[in-house]
Design a protein around this nucleic acid. Structure first.
Lengths: 185, 185
DNA sequence: TTGCAAAACTAATGCCATTAGTTATAATAA
DNA sequence: TTATTATAACTAATGGCATTAGTTTTGCAA
């Protein structure tokens, strides 16, 4: 490797995502990152301000990719109930990118405008999908919170082996989403 | 302080819980623990095998106290729907002991028999509370997963400021639980 | 070709968990 | 009462981590 790598923030974030998805968010350290990039860890500071800043980047990228996954699925959704489709896209993303998904909630400062904005887009697309239910404004927001709780809780428990092995996980997810939607009306 | 403190595992776990609830699970370190107990960190190893073992202890105590909070509330529940009562007890515990609750899912080895058993008791009490709905076995288990997803997701998002400030959180919780229960039948 | 800014580097600090080996003490046995 | 012993504290040391300061290298631009 040459003493001058083509290193930039993109490459750093991308490598961090690889580490997170393969070994978990806790494995995203300056030391591990430097190892993968074949540089010494202090060199990273030429490109990013430190670990907290990196965590913010990771959260931001995670939220954006999650939104993108939801949106893509939505436009392609076939006959299915669009809320179910959205929920399944959420879960699919979390399973495909367990570390990046986890990072989504582990920003060092989740009040950052960019992170807030990325989160709001997810809320908005969920609201949009709920339009067909003709809920009043507050009820729609409560419902979004409910869906997010269900989806995040499900993912979080699944990733922590919080569920036993007796029942199929996708069956549970279908049932839970359908049951919740049945309750709206 | 005397060179011989009345230190034991109970005191260590109790102090760890204090740290977790005040400053977060991430602040539960051997160093911080030793500081609070006015000893040097290597002395802790006379009582506990290390940080991973401490995390397991914390998870175990968290699960047991969570179960206890649910059970107590259940026996005292008045007119309310018992499932709602159980859910509210869950949330109340998580709010009262944010760090300990968080630790619940952060065991170093959540396959330990004791931890499994503590988790199973929570599932069982939830199943019991669902009996009045006369669900078949599988449906009951799916429902338990749904309730856990809702409750854990809600707590997790609440603790991460994942919800905006527009709506009252307790209103959301009520609505979500009621909506889900309406869907069962 | 030379000069400069950027990006790598080494060295050093301070924090952490953990291990090894030592000392002090409280309880127990003589 | 005194001697013994197990235990629980200690100090010292190692290795890993993030981070800062200061230095060298390098590729591009004048």
């Amino acid at each position: 490797m040459s003493p001058r790598m083509g290193l930039d923030l993109q490459k750093i974030v991308q490598t961090s995502i690889e580490i997170a998805d393969e070994d978990g968010v806790h494995a995203v350290t300056m030391a591990n990152l430097a190892k993968r990039l074949n540089i010494r860890s202090p060199s990273l500071y030429n490109h990013i301000e430190g670990l907290p800043a990196l965590r913010n980047e990771l959260a931001l990228h995670g939220l954006r990719q999650l939104y993108s996954a939801m949106e893509t699925n939505l436009s392609q959704s076939s006959l299915q109930n669009p809320v179910i489709a959205l929920g399944k896209a959420y879960i699919r993303f979390a399973r495909l990118h367990p570390g990046l998904y986890e990072a989504t909630l582990h920003a060092s400062d989740n009040q950052l405008p960019e992170i807030q904005k990325a989160g709001n887009k997810i809320i908005e697309i969920t609201l949009k999908v709920l339009e067909s239910y003709h809920l009043d404004k507050d009820t729609a927001l409560h419902t979004v919170r409910g869906l997010r709780s269900i989806l995040h809780g499900f993912v979080s428990l699944e990733q922590n082996n919080g569920f036993g092995i007796t029942l199929d996980l996708d069956d549970s997810l279908d049932y839970i989403l359908i049951t919740f939607l049945k309750g709206i009306q």
